[in-house]
Amino acid sequence: MENQDIPPKIDSTVPVIDIRDLYKSFDDLEVLKGVDLTVYKGENVVVLGRSGSGKSVLIKILVGLLKPDKGDVRVLGQKVDMLEEKELNALRLRIGFSFQSSALYDSMNIRQNLEFPLKMNRKNISRKEINRAVEEVLNAVGLEDKVDQMPAELSGGQRKRIGIARTLILKPEIMLYDEPTAGLDPITSFEINNLINQMQLKYNTSSIIITHDLTCAKETGDRVGMFVEGKFTKVGKFEDVFDTNDEHVKGFYNYNFIQ
C-alpha cells in the first residue's frame, strides 16, 4: 500500500469533534455514561466495542439524529444539540454519515440514490457535474457497472459500498463510518480500508470508524478507542491499546483472531 509512505496530516491543535461527559438513555436503559472523545483535523479514530454498547447511538448524536441527555457535543466548533434547523443542516452537509444498514432509498436506482443529496442541496448544479460526481464516487467504491440497478438487486456488501459512495458525493469534512467492512470479504474489506485512507489523504477528512474488524482498525485508525459499558476505557495508538492485560481489550483481540 503506497499510502503508508506519506504520513497523514493531522493537526492536533484543531479539534473537529469534541465530546465531553456525554450521557444518553432510552427510558430505563442507560446507553452512554460519560463519553469523552476528541477527534482532530485529518485524523481517523476507530471505535471498537461490543454489540449493543452504544456506538451507533454515539455517532447519531453527532449529526443530531438523537439528542443527548447531558454533556457537551461540539462538531466543527458548533454545539450540535443547540443548533437551529438551518444551522444544523448546514453542518450536516459537512458531515458524511454512512449507515450500518446502508439505508439506500429502495424506490430509487443506484444513480438516483447517489444524485439525490447533490440535486437536493445544490440547486444550480449541471447535469454534467452530477454525472462526473456520480462516476467519481462509483469509481472509488469500484461499482461502476451497477449504476442502473435497484438497491434490492445488490448484495449486502455492494449496498454498503454504495451507501459509502452516497455520503462521499458531497465531499464531507468529517466522515462517520458505521461498520464499513461488516459482512465484506477480505479483499473488499481491504479496498474499503484503502478508500477510507484515500479520503483522509486526498481531502484531509477526519473520521470516526466504528468497527468490529481489527484489521480495519489497524489499517485505518490513527488512534483506537475501546468503548466499554457506555464510555471509552482506553484511547490511543492501536499497539498501545492492545498492549494491556485489561480483560475487555484482551477478549476483543483474542476472539477477533480466533482460528
Partner: peptide, 25 residues
C-alpha cells in the same frame, strides 16, 4: 407501508443527515 419501511430501514434518517427535510419531501 412505504413510509413505515423507510422509517425502519433508516432511509428517513438518511435523508435527514443529508440535510433534506424528510417531512417536506
Amino acid at each position: 407501508a412505504e413510509l413505515g419501511s423507510m422509517k425502519v430501514t433508516e432511509q428517513i434518517d438518511a435523508m435527514e443527515v443529508s440535510a433534506i427535510n424528510p417531512f417536506k419531501y
